[in-house]
Amino acid sequence: MAGGKRPTGNAALRSEVPGVDHCLQEAMTIPGAVGASIVDYTTGFPVATTGAAPNEDHEAAAAGTAEVVQAASSRSLFVSAVPHDLLEDLIITTAGGYHLLRLVHTEFDSRLVLYVWLDRVRGNLAVARRKMQRLADELVARR
């Protein structure tokens, strides 16, 4: 409560949790990765984080991530009318970086998205996207 903003986001990660922790470590091996997190997009809460975040604030980044996902999944412009044509990734590019969001579809009820921030010069969008797809699927055992 009284503490700064940083420690909270890392809370789940700092402890010994191989599953989620491992996923984020793997995400950081993507060429050009600067930071990664798993975000609950209904509440904008970073469930686990690692590395850097835009503006050094994982919580603000998570809140922003949630807004983007909500916009894409609830506005009719992006929602497909075809059944089971679910949202997969969201990619935002800036002059300096890539922001990749991959939805993690668990069978039980959850609303999670894997977020990776890539350096524009070192990162490769296609490679990163493939890797993130694999990571999100491995996390919940979909192959």
Partner: peptide
């Protein structure tokens, strides 16, 4: 029955 990732995400979600 579950992957470690699933279990952790489920417990985290339920706990919060």
């Amino acid at each position: 029955h579950l992957t470690q990732g699933e279990l952790e995400l489920c417990v985290l979600g339920a706990t919060y």
